[in-house]
Design a protein around this nucleic acid. Structure first.
Length: 136
DNA sequence: CTTCTGACA
DNA sequence: TGTCAGGA
């Protein structure tokens, strides 16, 4: 797995990352404070980002744009790297939902969040209800 | 010139 | 989140 070291190899300063991710330095530093990313540091305290860090930032950016806050992103990202639960349960019904385990529910939430996005005005009842249960 | 931390008119 | 300060 020598490719892993390449991906986690700290290479670029925040300036490059800003252009690569379209995020402001403020946001990048903010996300780091909230442990969404952990860039390496030079002796002079300069942040050095790896390819993986950039990928994470892009995911974070996508989730932010879908209306999630730090808490929501943390959970969505920390859970299952894989996604066994397919679209079959996308249209979960009330009854079937009660049978789901918390793990499955989380995966389902991630899918819906990633595919649908969270409505800040609250028009998606199902997602709304579950988000309040897990993200609040 | 670029980045860093802390703070808030 | 933006932005400015003051230092590295």
């Amino acid at each position: 797995m020598s490719d892993d070291i390449r991906r986690n190899m700290a290479l670029f300063p925040i300036g490059i990352v800003m252009k690569l991710t379209e995020l402001t330095a403020r946001q990048i530093r903010y996300y780091e404070q909230h442990e969404l990313i952990f860039p390496a540091r030079t002796e002079g305290k300069q942040r050095l980002f790896s390819f993986n860090d950039v990928d994470r930032l892009l995911e974070i950016k996508a989730l932010i744009e879908k209306g999630l806050n730090i808490a929501g992103i943390k959970q969505v990202m920390s859970l299952e790297q894989s996604e066994p639960v397919k679209t079959e349960i996308t249209a979960t019904s009330e009854q079937k939902r009660k049978e789901l385990t918390d793990k499955e529910l989380h995966q389902l939430l991630k899918q819906q969040v990633v595919n649908t996005g969270v409505s800040r005005t609250g028009d998606n009842a199902l997602i709304r209800a579950e988000l309040s249960r897990f993200f609040h």
